[in-house]
Computed example of a mutant assay.
Amino acid sequence: MHDEHAIPNPDESATPDDSADGTSRRAVLRTAGIAGAGLGLGSLAGGTAHADAPQGAPAAAQAPPRKGKTMVGVPFERRSTVRVGIVGLGNRGGSMIDLFLAVPGVRVVALCDPVKDKTAAAAKKVTAAGQPAPATYTKGDHDFENLCKRGDIDFVYVATPWDWHFDMAKTAMLNGKHVGVECPIALQLDQLWELVDLSERTRRHCMQLENCCYGKNEMRVLRMAHAGKFGDLLHGAGAYNHDLRGLMFDPDYYEGPWRRLWHTRLRGDLYPNHGFGPVSNYMDIN
């Protein structure tokens, strides 16, 4: 992200998501019903059927008609300083702030968490790094809305319990901010498509962040794939095996039992993108 503060003109954006034969990603998703079920999203789907979907297609596979031009391949605006607002200062947000502060040209200008002690501790990190004291938002669960309304933020980073991700990403874009959200970015398929449409309409980037794409092993394989060491990649497989029992019952790790509750509501892989994220990178998908 880098010196023009104006939102790009949608009419000037390229549409690289259409293949040479005119097939768009949405058209593929609209007809590939089995893909939605294979990703395990069907049990989370909460949307209604769209009128343009093919007859008999599963609800999990249906994609709404495009309302704007793709953001794939659209660069961030150039800025001499990238101004960041952080929402959620638990273990993920509280550790990510150290990385933001370590990047030259990045300034943390606002922090939000209803737990005041966490916000105060994060604010001390900002001033200790030599930056001005950040604005803090601690007045309840919806104070993030006031952070997003600020005129001096370019990028909102969201690291909160999953139930809040969709509303926070939507609020950030509606207020003209780019947004990066820890996984999962939303919990229902209709919410996912709404975020895609909103990103394309507002010309704001909406990124699902995926830490497992950037481990040393994953980056090694990515370099090897791009160097052609595996030839043409036609098939990939990924998984996520992680014994979370120690963390789930650690009172100092999570603020309340919110994450543990998800494992009582659903069975299966709750982080499928940990597996398919790196594989998508190897295959240059999006």
Rank of each mutant, 00 (worst) to 15 (best):
N281W: 03
G36H: 01
L234Q: 12
P10W: 06
V196P: 02
Y157P: 00
W258R: 02
P251M: 11
R201H: 01
W262S: 03
Q191L: 10
A227N: 12
G40N: 13
N217V: 15
L261Q: 14
I285M: 12
V108G: 04
K229W: 07
D269N: 15
R245M: 00
A225H: 04
M248G: 02
N286S: 08
L189C: 07
M173E: 00
M207L: 04
P64E: 08
M1L: 12
P257N: 10
A60H: 06
T23K: 10
I97G: 00
V196M: 10
E210W: 08
I153Y: 02
W258S: 07
V72L: 15
A37P: 03
A129H: 03
M283N: 07
M173A: 08
G140W: 07
P104M: 11
V87Q: 03
A59V: 14
G94F: 01
V82H: 00
D197E: 06
N273C: 08
V106N: 07
E182R: 10
E12K: 14
G68K: 05
P65A: 13
A32H: 13
D3F: 10
V181Y: 00
G268C: 08
V221G: 01
F144K: 01
S24R: 06
S95H: 13
G68F: 07
M173G: 02
M219G: 05
S199W: 06
K118C: 10
D21N: 14
D117H: 15
T160W: 00
I185G: 01
N9T: 13
K125W: 07
R150N: 07
L189K: 03
Y282S: 01
R220M: 07
H205C: 05
N241R: 13
I34P: 06
T119K: 13
P104L: 11
D98M: 14
V109E: 04
A102C: 12
N9Q: 10
K139G: 07
A172V: 10
D154T: 04
Q55W: 13
M248N: 00
F166H: 01
H235I: 13
A159S: 15
T31V: 15
H263C: 06
D269M: 10
T138H: 09
F166K: 02
R107K: 09
S95I: 06
F166C: 04
A123M: 11
G85H: 00
F155D: 02
A59G: 12
G46T: 05
A128R: 12
A120W: 03
P278C: 14
F100W: 15
E218M: 15
I97V: 14
V106M: 08
M71I: 08
G130P: 02
D52C: 14
A110Q: 01
T119L: 10
K67L: 15
G56N: 12
L99Q: 13
A59T: 11
D117P: 09
Y240I: 11
P64I: 15
D232I: 08
E218W: 11
A135H: 09
R220L: 12
C212Y: 12
R204A: 03
C148T: 08
G236H: 06
G22C: 02
D243M: 09
D17G: 09
G105P: 00
E77G: 13
R203H: 15
S24M: 12
G151P: 10
C206G: 01
D154Q: 02
P65H: 04
A59D: 12
A20H: 11
M71Q: 00
A123H: 09
T138A: 13
H242I: 01
G176T: 06
L192P: 00
